Simulated assay, not measured.
Amino acid sequence: MYTRNEITINCDKKTAFQYARQVEQWPVLLPHYRGVQFEQGSSDQGGLVMMRAVRPFKPFKWPVWWVSEMNVDEQSCSVYYKHVRGVTAGMEVEWLIEPVSHGGQVRVIIIHRWLQPPFGRRLASGMIGEVFVHAIADRTLQGLKEQIEQQAVQEEVG
């Protein structure tokens, strides 16, 4: 299974990186996140993190959770995850942040790879990828874009 989500945000690379790595703030910023707790480490250094979110389906919200090993790369402004518990155990996730050529913007890309899902989940991996993983990642990027750009407007006005 492979999914790719991307969005262009009006900000610099460091700002996007700070929002991408400070996952414990996501439940405050993103309504589809129910909780993020580090079992070990922190967003500054990485560690073992449990994430809980919902995938809305009218009329209900499907709860999902996973535990990941999070690694933060300051040099490249990238964040990497390896899911170690939950339905998606073994999935690898890469957050990439690239400047856009005409300046003042960055492209944030999330790539999910689940090359060897457990046997019982192999048949469902396509549905899990499109219906859950891609949809939640898209909501995450849209929500972070709104938060970052809204913060920039408030700083200009204030």
Rank of each mutant, 00 (worst) to 15 (best):
E69P: 01
L115W: 15
L123H: 03
V67Y: 00
Q75K: 07
W65N: 05
H102G: 09
S68K: 02
Y81S: 07
M70W: 02
G103H: 10
V64S: 05
V84T: 11
I110K: 13
E130L: 14
M127G: 14
I109E: 09
S101P: 15
I109F: 08
V100Y: 01
G103V: 03
T88M: 13
Y81D: 04
Q75Y: 06
E130C: 15
W95K: 07
M91V: 09
V84F: 07
V72K: 06
C77A: 03
L96K: 14
E130A: 15
M70D: 04
Q75H: 10
M127A: 14
Q105L: 06
Q105S: 10
S78I: 00
L115A: 15
Q105C: 05
I110M: 13
E92H: 13
E98R: 09
L123S: 05
E130R: 15
V108G: 11
W114P: 01
G120V: 06
S68W: 02
G103E: 12
P99S: 05
E69F: 00
R122I: 14
T88Q: 11
V100A: 01
Q116I: 13
I109W: 06
E92P: 04
G129I: 03
G90P: 01
E98C: 05
G104T: 01
N71A: 04
V106N: 01
P117N: 03
E74L: 11
W95E: 05
L115R: 15
P99W: 02
M127W: 15
K61R: 04
S68L: 00
G126P: 09
A124Q: 07
V87L: 13
W114T: 03
V72Y: 04
F119R: 15
N71M: 10
G86F: 03
S78M: 05
W114Y: 02
Y80T: 11
G104F: 00
C77Q: 03
E130Q: 15
G129F: 03
G86L: 02
M70V: 04
R122N: 12
V108H: 09
V106L: 04
E92Y: 11
Q116P: 04
E74V: 10
R121K: 14
G129N: 04
E92C: 09
S76T: 07
S78C: 04
E74W: 05
P117L: 05
R113N: 14
I110C: 08
V64Q: 08
W114N: 01
E130N: 15
Q105G: 08
S101N: 13
V100S: 02
W95T: 13
V87E: 12
Q75P: 04
Y80H: 10
Q116A: 11
V106A: 02
H83I: 14
H112P: 00
H112I: 00
V84A: 09
R107D: 00
S68N: 00
G126V: 11
H102I: 07
V67E: 00
W95I: 12
G129A: 03
Q75W: 04
W62R: 13
Y80K: 12
R107C: 04
G104Y: 00
Q116M: 08
R113F: 12
P118W: 14
I128F: 02
G126D: 07
C77M: 05
W66N: 06
I109S: 10
M91D: 11
L123K: 05
W114K: 01
Y81R: 09
F119A: 15
R113E: 15
G90R: 01
M127K: 13
E98L: 08
H112E: 03
K61V: 05
V84N: 08
I111F: 07
V106K: 03
I110W: 07
